[in-house]
Computed example of a mutant assay.
Amino acid sequence: MPVTDAFFEQLADVGHDPRLCKVHGSVRFDIRDGDRLRQWLLSIDHGQLRVTPGDGPAQAVLKLSTEVAEAMVRGELNGLSAMLRGEILVDGDLALALRMGRLFPSPAAAREVGHPWARR
């Protein structure tokens, strides 16, 4: 299973993230791997998370490659930097898209012992 799929499934299991307590909206991640497209729809209601695989309307759509998504999940790549370099394209609500960076580990957190996404 790709680390991005495991990451989004873990978000679904968590159900609430206090870092997003002031956020309300929906974001879809369109992750391209060659000809294959994996999509994750994230609905946020003041920290309550609902994550579902698949397509659906969203206020912000982030389009990125599997390599970029996996690097973000592992804490190796900052989402804002990737957006500025054109590695992530955003359609819709940019402010909402930028808040998604809170979900991904920082490089320091990714290096912590036991972090599920860090490369060993």
Rank of each mutant, 00 (worst) to 15 (best):
A69C: 12
L84H: 13
S81T: 15
M100P: 04
S65Y: 08
L64Q: 09
G75I: 00
L64M: 15
L62K: 01
Q59N: 11
G92C: 04
A95M: 08
V73E: 06
A60D: 05
M100Y: 01
N78W: 05
L84I: 12
G92H: 06
D91V: 03
T66L: 07
V90Y: 03
G86T: 11
D91N: 15
A82D: 06
L98Q: 10
D93C: 01
P53R: 10
L96W: 05
M100A: 04
Q59I: 01
M83H: 12
L94A: 12
E87H: 04
A71G: 15
L62N: 02
V61Y: 00
L96K: 14
R74T: 05
K63T: 04
A69F: 02
V68S: 07
L89I: 14
A97T: 02
M72D: 05
Q59T: 06
A97K: 01
N78K: 10
A97S: 14
G54L: 03
P57V: 05
R74W: 03
A82N: 11
G92K: 04
V73C: 12
A71K: 14
V68K: 08
M72Y: 09
G79I: 00
L89Q: 14
L84W: 15
A69T: 08
E76G: 09
L94D: 14
L80M: 14
A71M: 13
L62D: 00
L84V: 13
G92S: 05
V90Q: 11
P53D: 05
M72F: 09
V90D: 08
M83P: 05
D91F: 00
E70F: 06
S65F: 09
V73R: 07
G75D: 08
G75T: 11
A60M: 02
G56H: 13
G79E: 00
M100I: 02
P57S: 13
E67R: 14
L64Y: 01
R99Y: 00
G92Y: 01
E87N: 07
G86N: 13
S65P: 09
V73M: 14
L84E: 12
K63N: 07
R85A: 10
D93W: 01
V73D: 06
E70K: 06
R74I: 03
A97I: 01
P57D: 15
L89R: 11
R99Q: 04
N78F: 03
R85V: 04
L64V: 04
M100G: 00
S81I: 09
V61I: 04
K63A: 06
E76R: 12
E70G: 10
M72P: 10
M83F: 08
N78C: 03
A58R: 00
T66I: 05
A97W: 00
R102G: 06
P53L: 00
A82M: 12
P53W: 02
L62R: 01
S65V: 10
E70H: 10
